[in-house]
Design a protein around this nucleic acid. Structure first.
Lengths: 108, 108
DNA sequence: TATACATGCAACCAATCGGTTTCTCAAATT
DNA sequence: AATTTGAGAAACCGATTGGTTGCATGTATA
């Protein structure tokens, strides 16, 4: 049972659930109302998100409120981090770098 | 054929390929040497990464060099962005905020 | 206490995934 | 010209996925 964050956010429905829960903790029934799938299908998604700790439960009576855990989504950000400098260096910045190197070549 | 970036990076082998290619463009054979799977299995991963534009091809003779496309991985960053403020507001920062509010309450 | 409600779990199903082996094709090498 | 090499495509296979329906259980409510 591979249950890592990347596999969890691969599904668009699960990403939508996260966006929903991030705004406000909700019960499975309340979450399911936002989707066309059955309550059980949504419950399965919630289970997967909970198993990889993207959500945590808070039981009150017979209702279970699911809360979003920001720290876990940070793992994705950490992985993406290694590429950030690459898209931040735009073409014009690259051009500037090349110009400088040409200058340097001229000088030497 | 669902071919979005999130589904592409769900697989750990594909994430490793991206990390590899980000450093240097490589041919399928060169990539496959870094893994235990067969060349064809790696080729399938490359195909998926290419189809969602995380990689782009550059053919030279019979060899094909695969380049990393940073702009596409930015899509993941954009999605994660909506949660960033949530994990950046740590408990101590929240405590400070509460202290300030207490102060404000005292003053008023 | 009987009934309705909220939730989770199990069984089932078609589709997809990640891997393999085999084959084809074009380009390089001999 | 014959052979080797790099790469993609096809066929196949077991495991997993995402969905369904039906059932079990604990909690509120009439």
């Amino acid at each position: 049972m591979r249950r890592d964050v990347f596999q969890a956010i691969a599904d668009p429905t699960r990403r939508a659930i996260l966006t929903l829960i991030a705004l406000q903790a909700m019960t499975p029934n309340a979450i399911a109302e936002h989707f066309d799938s059955s309550r059980q299908a949504i419950s399965k998604h919630i289970k997967i998100l909970t198993e990889c700790q993207l959500l945590r439960q808070e039981q009150t009576g017979r209702e279970i409120y699911y809360h979003f855990n920001p720290r876990k989504i940070k793992e994705v950000d950490t992985w993406v981090e290694q590429f950030r400098t690459m898209w931040e260096s735009r073409f014009d910045q690259l051009d500037e770098l090349l110009k400088k190197q040409n200058l340097k070549n001229k000088e030497s």
